[in-house]
């Protein structure tokens, strides 16, 4: 690419990026303003910079905010692991193996993501209450080990199906069974799909307010997503400054995970496997 057009591309990407990021910039700026000035002074540039919101926000709740970060990290970490394992297993079967009623099971799998969860939440709650799992992390984690996030199964099925079947067959001729094909041929070539699954699971679990709020009620079990909402009370007084500050803090881990994950995201067939 000629130098001029490269420069132009950079400029375009930066300009466009700034527009995309305006809300984030506003949030960062607000988190640095004294709390009472946040809405009085609508501009982006703070007239007065303070870190009070960070200090206040970190200690405003029952535990320090780090405690909630850790709670979230545990649930999120287990969820990522669970989805990677369970969904890739199921995806391989759907994408590569033949078995009776495959079409039906596939349809059911897809169908299970089409029902709005608001109507299944009560029956589901009853199931977990029967198991005595309320106020534990199991309602949030165990379903993921059981591949209930069908979204990711479908994602990986689509990725596996872009891989030429000759690969499996070549490996089979070399004497590999299904498990070896899966572990040694398919999985390494599915890095981008696995990375996508990992990243999305991380982000969605980290931000999942609805079920965490429902199942983790004890104030010692709260997660970041729930803790952040505690700064706001639309019926009374809200702590906007600390909320913005802690929102920025809680973006850290997900952004970090994204940065780490994106290395694998681009390590597809193009850069490994097939040459």
């Amino acid at each position: 690419m000629p130098r001029g057009s490269r420069l132009l591309k950079h400029l375009l990407l930066i300009a466009f990026g700034l527009v995309m990021l305006y809300p984030l910039l506003w949030m960062i700026s607000s988190s640095l303003k004294p709390e009472e000035l946040i809405f009085r002074e609508p501009g982006l540039w703070p007239s007065e910079v303070t870190l009070d919101n960070y200090g206040d926000g970190w200690t405003a709740l029952k535990h320090s905010f780090g405690y909630y970060l850790w709670n979230s990290a545990v649930i999120t970490g287990l969820s990522v692991l669970a989805n990677l394992v369970a969904c890739s297993l199921a995806a391989y079967a759907f994408a590569r193996l033949n078995f009776p009623l495959k079409k039906l099971w596939f349809t059911i799998m897809l169908g299970s993501i089409m029902l709005p969860h608001h109507v299944t939440v009560v029956p589901q709650y009853i199931v977990f209450a029967e198991l005595d799992w309320i106020n534990t992390i199991w309602p949030l984690v165990v379903p993921k080990f059981l591949a209930t996030d069908a979204f990711f199964i479908f994602l990986m099925v689509q990725f596996i199906r872009t891989l030429p079947r000759e690969l499996d067959e070549a490996a089979a001729i070399d004497g590999a069974g299904y498990w070896r094909v899966f572990l040694q041929v398919i999985l390494p070539l599915c890095m981008p799909a696995l990375a996508t699954t990992g990243i999305f699971t991380f982000i969605w679990t980290w931000n999942d307010f609805f079920s965490q709020n429902l199942y983790l009620t004890n104030s010692d079990n709260l997660t970041v997503a729930v803790a952040l909402r505690q700064f706001l009370d639309s019926s009374g007084e809200s702590s906007w400054g600390p909320m913005f500050a802690m929102s920025i803090v809680s973006l850290g881990p997900i952004f970090g995970f994204f940065l780490a994950g994106q290395k694998y995201l681009i390590r597809g067939v193009a850069t490994t496997g097939l040459k």
Binding site: S219, Q230, D233
Partner: peptide, 11 residues
């Protein structure tokens, strides 16, 4: 229900 302040008081 409430905000962080109420949570602290209630605890």
């Amino acid at each position: 229900w409430g905000s962080d302040a109420r949570q602290k008081l209630t605890e």
